[in-house]
Amino acid sequence: MQLPTERELAATIDHAILKPDLTRTDVDAELDIAAQWGVFSVCVRPSDIAYAVRRLDGTGVAVGTVIGFPHGTTSTTAKVAETIRAFEDGATECDMVLNIGALRSGFDDVVADDIRAVVDAAGGRITKVILETSLLDDEQIARGSRLTEAGGADFVKTSTGFAGGGATVPHVRLMRENVGAPVQVKASGGVRSLDTALAMLDAGATRLGTSASATILGELRAIHAGETASGAVDESSY
């Protein structure tokens, strides 16, 4: 694929700030990284939403959060309540973990109803559904993707990053193949280098979840800087 500009790549990134042991100082540092690099959004812990909204005010960086994270096993009622509160606190998007056990059990109605309830609670705001692909086989990933679309969500997403595995190119392709064009794919978990980020986008992802935004965008900046320097040398040789 053609190398994107730094702004184009930054516009695909949800900078993840989700580790349970992060202190306020750690969160501040990550929010500053997001603002410095101009990523699309941060994805923060629910308890950090209101603070992140205040701190990022005026930067152009949106604030998203997670629902039923990281296991997806909270009740639908709890997920709905969490979703409502998240948007009241200022979130603009949410990434919910579907009921993984229900999906593996073949309880498709339970999964779709769970998704639909959160989508309804989001009231038209962007909702992404995390499948946790490392715990699923290909049939389950394909079915989970279709149920995500059936539930009315905007994105299907690979992983939380907390289940011992992350996004893979084959899984992103499989997800892309099993949803219609209006549903987008988010690759998350293990996206820590420019090469990996570009591979996920080439496979069909349109959003990347990563805590390595500075590394990825820094690599791209260095490449573009090298191209500019090479062009300048070539021009001066005429």
Rank of each mutant, 00 (worst) to 15 (best):
T158V: 12
T73Y: 12
I216C: 04
F40Q: 14
D234S: 15
T168N: 03
D234V: 12
I49Q: 03
V63N: 05
T83S: 14
G60Q: 15
T59W: 05
I223S: 11
A121C: 04
A142M: 05
A16R: 09
E6P: 12
R173F: 02
A11N: 13
G190L: 00
A167E: 07
G204P: 02
T127I: 05
S159R: 13
S230W: 15
A199T: 11
D120W: 02
N99V: 06
G152Q: 02
G101A: 08
S75L: 01
D154P: 07
I17G: 05
T5R: 06
R24Y: 04
T74Y: 14
C43Q: 01
D32C: 01
R125C: 02
I13K: 07
D26E: 06
D48K: 07
L131V: 08
A117H: 00
L98P: 03
A52N: 08
T160H: 04
D14G: 07
R176I: 06
A62T: 11
K79F: 05
G166Y: 00
L22D: 07
D154M: 08
V185C: 05
V183I: 15
V39S: 05
A10W: 02
L208A: 13
S41E: 05
R173V: 02
D138H: 13
S134K: 02
L9N: 08
A50E: 13
A121P: 02
L147V: 10
A91F: 03
A10K: 06
S213E: 10
P70A: 03
A153L: 10
E6V: 14
E139W: 07
R54M: 12
Y51E: 06
A35W: 04
S75Y: 02
G180H: 01
R7G: 14
I13Y: 05
L18I: 11
R143Y: 03
G72L: 08
L217W: 04
T77P: 06
S75E: 04
V110Q: 00
A163I: 12
P70D: 00
A214Q: 15
